[in-house]
């Protein structure tokens, strides 16, 4: 696995049926190339939460994934409303999701903290009315 695997995915807005497809696909790739199961799980959780966030808050977006022999870098971007107070949004339990989202099982206010906990490097760039980009890196060793 010395070559670099690059994948791009479209994350459709408000489509709960296929939300998670990109994460599921990346999970399969990581398992196939022999990444350790606990690393696959951490990566899956981080990417899935970010994908769900793009569906719920960002009106959909894109995922760009690069895998080399040492790490995976996942960039999930949306052109949604942005995050006004990132520090507050990082707090466990804080959520701006409406009840309709909670009825779907999300909006517990755990998404960003779950992403942080399962990433080795997490960077978030956000601007109100411009959108949010989340950069997740997970090392394989």
């Amino acid at each position: 696995m010395s070559s670099v695997v690059v994948r791009d995915y479209i994350i459709p807005a408000n489509d709960f049926t296929i939300a998670g497809d990109a994460s599921s696909n990346v999970r399969k790739i990581l398992s196939q190339i022999g990444v350790a199961p606990d690393i696959v799980k951490r990566t899956s959780i981080a990417m899935y939460e970010a994908e769900i966030n793009a569906v719920i808050h960002g009106n959909g977006g894109q995922a760009h994934v690069e895998i080399d022999e040492n790490k995976i870098v996942i960039i999930i971007s949306d052109q949604g409303p942005g995050i006004a107070d990132l520090e507050l949004a990082m707090q466990e339990g804080y959520s701006t999701a409406p009840d309709s989202i909670r009825e779907m099982g999300f909006g517990a206010g755990m998404g960003l903290s779950n992403i942080k906990k399962n990433s080795d490097i997490l960077e978030i760039k956000t601007a109100v009315n411009e959108g949010t980009t989340v950069y997740i890196t997970v090392f394989f060793k």
């Binding site: 709960f16 049926t17 939300a19 998670g20 959780i45 899935y48 939460e49 769900i52 909670r102 779907m104 099982g105 999300f106 909006g107 517990a108 206010g109 755990m110 998404g111 903290s113 779950n114 906990k117």
Partner: peptide
């Protein structure tokens, strides 16, 4: 019933009990 709460749980060989019905479960 909240899936992000499930994702904050980290045991292996686990079982999930829920009242939520949708594909995201």
């Amino acid at each position: 019933d909240l899936m992000s709460d499930v994702m904050a749980f980290s045991k292996s060989n686990a079982l999930l009990l829920t009242g939520l019905i949708n594909p995201q479960v």
